[in-house]
């Protein structure tokens, strides 16, 4: 087992290095001049000679005057030291500017996990067990609607219903502007602002996940060992939760890994619609504004997260199914 883990960790390092070369090359090939971007807004207030001097200074500061391979190794070395560079948009180190959005994203995603799994797991199982009944058909119809409608349409619908027509929740934002109070009060206010995006996130996640749980459960319930378990006279509860559900867990673990990564990555649509200042919004803004230090740092971060997530996922398979051997 340990040998397996070390081997996988070695693979992670290799994949990381290959991906870093590819990503760096990709970003380098994107047209645009970061030094010019750094000065763009000040151009009108400078004379050409002054602008040129500042431009050359910016080129030096960003290391763009060095050969590309030197730029790559400098960037890689700095990244490994957790120095992700300088954001051209925020005019500050990337490390300093991503803290708050990361906190917001994690908060929103962790809170959404609880109701999502609390609803989808029992609903999917119940739907699978009662396959073909009116209950199952109703769940199928509702989840297909939730699954088919685009995120932003659902978000705008919920805003219209719960923030404009019946103004229960705020339309956007993370906090009531200029609110002062105890940490508890501030926290509750944040929860209040989080409610609507949370509801939308939960609603949009129900369809896919419920149907996934239902499908894997149906598959598991068809297995011979379920028939055997029933023939042995085990109660239906034991058959479903101890035998069928545990076997249905393996594909579910794959889904869980994706969710684990999404805790840190955020949703572009949700965050932009509700102006929830999270990582999804930061990354899309960085890409739009060609703030490559931010986007490259985040892509590398998610790469590492995915590689580790995959390792955790493979280890979990062994825990969920003793037949799986890690070699």
């Amino acid at each position: 087992m340990l040998k397996y883990v070390f081997k996988r960790l070695a693979y992670i390092v290799i994949v990381f290095l290959i991906a870093s070369v590819l990503l760096f090359a990709l970003y380098k090939s994107v047209p645009g001049d970061p030094a010019r971007m750094m000065l763009e807004g000040n151009k009108a207030s400078m004379k050409p000679a002054e602008y040129e001097a500042r431009y050359q200074d910016a080129v030096r500061k960003l290391g763009l005057d060095k050969p590309v391979f030197v730029q790559y190794f400098t960037w890689l070395f700095n990244t490994l030291r957790l120095d992700f560079g300088y954001s051209l948009t925020y005019k500050m180190p990337v490390k300093e500017m991503i803290g708050e959005p990361m906190k917001n994203t994690i908060m929103l995603n962790v809170w959404s996990l609880i109701p999502v799994f609390a609803i989808t797991l029992p609903l999917g199982i119940a739907s699978a067990v009662r396959r073909g009944t009116r209950f199952d058909r109703s769940v199928q119809i509702i989840t297909i609607i939730g699954y088919s409608l685009p995120f932003f349409v659902i978000a705008l619908l919920f805003i219209f219903l719960l923030a404009v027509k019946i103004p229960i929740f705020p339309i956007s934002g993370v906090q009531t502007p200029a609110l002062r109070g105890t940490p508890l009060r501030m926290f509750l206010d944040k929860l209040y602002h989080m409610a609507l995006p949370l509801i939308v996130m939960v609603f949009t996640s129900l369809g896919g996940l419920t149907r996934y749980v239902r499908a894997t459960m149906i598959e598991a319930l068809r297995m011979d060992y379920i028939r055997t378990a029933r023939a042995k006279g085990l109660s239906e509860k034991v058959v479903i939760y101890s035998h069928a559900f545990r076997n249905a867990l393996i594909p579910f673990i794959t889904i869980m890994t994706g969710w684990f990564i999404s805790i840190f990555s955020g949703s572009v649509v949700i965050e932009r619609t509700f102006l929830w200042n999270g990582m999804g919004k930061v990354i899309i803004d960085a890409l739009n504004q060609q703030d490559f230090a931010v986007s490259l740092a985040m892509v590398m971060f998610y790469l590492v997260l995915s590689l580790i997530g995959n390792l955790v996922m493979d280890l979990s398979y062994g825990l969920a199914d003793p037949r799986v051997r890690l070699e």
Partner: peptide, 20 residues
């Protein structure tokens, strides 16, 4: 007090309407 708050184009008129 003057406050500047981020809005998005899709919902900014709703925010004005609701007094946000």
């Amino acid at each position: 007090r003057l406050i500047i708050k981020l809005t998005n184009t899709a919902t900014q008129m709703d925010e004005l309407k609701t007094g946000a």
